[in-house]
Each structure stands twice: as C-alpha cells, then as structure tokens.
C-alpha cells in the first residue's frame, strides 16, 4: 500500500511539473529546459524556512512558489529582451550555476543535501493524506492551465507564439505574455518543490540537474505538447514504467542501462513517428518540439 501511495505521490508531483513545463515550452513556445531549478528553489526555500525559522510547511511551500516565480522572472527578463533563443542558454547557465552554489554553501547542506525537514502532515495515515493532497493540487493545476489556455489569455499566448512581430503590431506586449507564463509555470514548479521537500523530508542538489530536465522534457514530448492531457499521461507513463521494469528483477548492472535506453528510445521514437505525442494538441497543426523550435527561431 505504501508503495502504491508513493507512486501516486510521485505521479502527482510530476503532473504538476510537466503540465507547468508544457505551459512554458508547448503553449508559450519558450525554449528552456531549466524547469527543475525552480522545483529546487521551491524545495530548498520551503525546507530552509521550516528548519531555520520554524515557518509552518504550508506557508513555506507558498513562499517557495513565490520565490521561484520571482527568480524565474529575474532570469528570464534580460534574456527575453534580446531574443527568445537566449532563454535556453541563460536558464541552463542559471540552473547549473545555482546547483553548484547549493553544493558549495553550508547552510544549504552542501552536496549531501538537507535532511530532517518537518513533514507537511504526520501520523500513521501520512502517505494516504499526502497522496490525497498532491492529487487534488495536481488536478487543480491541470484544470487551471486548461482554463487559462482555453480562455482569452490562451488566445493571446497562441498568437504571440505563432508570430511575435505581428502580435506586437496589434498593440500587444509580447514581453508581458512571455514573462507571465514563464514566471507562472516556474512558480508551479516551485510549488511542487515545496510539496516534495515536506513529504520526502530530504532534498539534495543532484535531484534537480540536467537528468531531471530531460525527464520532464520527455514526459511532455511523449505525452503531447500543447495539450492538456499529454503531460499527465507522460508523467504517469514515465513514473510507472521504470517501476514495472523493476519487477522484472534484472540485475542492477542491466537495469540501469535498460532504463536509459528506454527513455532515450521513447524520445527518439516519438520525435520521428509521432511528434505530436500520445495526445495531439487540440487544434490542428500544433505540437512537437520541432515546431516549438521553429517558433523561437523567428
């Protein structure tokens, strides 16, 4: 039971991460893969606040989300002003740089990370309640993003992504939209980070590196970019699949490469055979990393 709940929680966290990442890269066409660093900011901020200042975890989690939002805006602002393409470089630089810093500093626990983070809830039913909370939040996040993208705001985001120049010529501020969705998406990653920290009660820098970036990217690409359900399916698939492989009882020396090959293989297969992902985007002619790349190249 504990095992199943653990998977539910993990899927829930990844649904938040992949859906918010899809908002940025799929809907917004903003190319960045540094999503995990905002996940990290949420996790560390909330963990440190509750350990050092005894801030209640709920407030810590909210503070982490807000901090992730502010920091992402600060990272994105200068690079988006020059051109969208610089966002990729600036954000990866920020991701790797901040992780280095976290590893070097004492108060962030260095490479070993931080343990003994207060739990969001305690007691024997802890996992069950937490699974419920994460599921509710994940569903809320998915519905919120869907409502945004199906509404008037979504129309503006799509127009901006399709043609930024024509969009500006209509008196619209492309910058405002780009900054808005990047900060909002990153804030949601921060929220997931806080939840993560107060459930596992342990964070370490290695969980937020490039591997994590590729994991979330794979979820979005395999599930289907710019669709609502795509990232949800992608998150479920990529959390559950490795668990199923674990049941095969392969020796560890075989296990690790098999997982690696599986993920890389999935991305390659989908890029070539079904670029729109398992769930295609709702309107025609959308989806796929190739197209998102094209948009940024304009």
């Amino acid at each position: 039971m504990e095992y199943i709940l653990n998977i539910v929680i993990l899927v829930g966290l990844y649904v938040i991460l992949s859906s918010s990442f899809n908002l940025i890269i799929g809907h917004g066409g903003l190319i960045s893969i540094a999503h995990p660093i905002f996940y990290a900011i949420g996790a560390y901020c909330s963990a440190l606040l509750s350990i050092n200042f005894h801030v209640p975890p709920v407030l810590g989690i909210l503070a982490g989300a807000v901090l992730a939002m502010l920091v992402s805006a600060a990272v994105a602002l200068p690079s988006l002003r020059i051109s969208g393409d610089y966002l990729l470089i600036a954000s990866i630089g920020f991701q790797l740089g901040l992780l280095q810093l976290i590893e070097q500093l004492d108060f962030t626990g260095g490479p070993g990370g931080i343990g003994n983070i207060p739990g969001l809830i305690d007691g024997p039913q802890r996992s069950l309640v937490f699974a419920g909370i994460v599921t509710v939040i994940a569903v809320f996040v998915v519905l919120l993003i869907r409502a945004l993208m199906n509404g008037d705001y979504g129309r503006a985001v799509r127009a901006m992504r399709d043609d930024e120049l024509a969009f500006s010529m209509l008196g619209r501020r492309a910058m405002k939209i780009k900054l808005g969705i990047f900060a909002f998406g990153s804030g949601l990653a921060g929220l997931a980070g806080g939840l993560y920290a107060h459930y596992y009660q342990y964070v370490s820098p290695e969980q937020f590196g490039i591997l994590q970036s590729s994991m979330i990217l794979t979820m979005v690409v395999v599930g289907g970019m710019s669709s609502t359900l795509g990232p949800v399916i992608g998150a479920g698939l990529l959390v559950i699949l490795p668990e199923l492989i674990a049941f095969l009882n392969l020796p560890p020396s075989v296990m690790a490469p098999v997982q690696g090959i599986l993920f890389t293989g999935l991305v390659l297969v989908f890029m070539f055979a079904r670029p729109q992902g398992i769930i295609g985007a709702s309107t025609k002619r959308r989806g796929g990393l190739a197209e998102a790349g094209q948009e940024s190249g304009r």
């Binding site: 919120l144 409502a147 945004l148 509404g151 008037d152 705001y153 979504g154 129309r155 503006a156 799509r158 127009a159 992504r161 399709d162 043609d163 120049l165 024509a166 969009f167 209509l170 008196g171 619209r172 501020r173 405002k176 939209i177 808005g180 909002f184 309107t283 025609k284 002619r285 959308r286």
Partner: peptide, 30 residues
C-alpha cells in the same frame, strides 16, 4: 504573418485594440 494555428475568427478577435484578455487574472475571473 497570420497566426497560423488559430481560426479565422480568433485571428480577428486577438486583433481588437481593446482586447484585454492578455491579463491572466482577468481572463480567469472573466
């Protein structure tokens, strides 16, 4: 330079100079 993934009507609606749906909060609260 049309908005290629959008419908004809949406291409026009987004062009209205008084379009105020580009605020996230307003768009959600309607």
């Amino acid at each position: 330079r049309l908005f290629q993934s959008m419908t004809v009507l949406d291409n026009l609606l987004i062009s209205a100079s008084e379009y105020r749906g580009d605020s996230m909060l307003r768009s959600l609260l309607r």
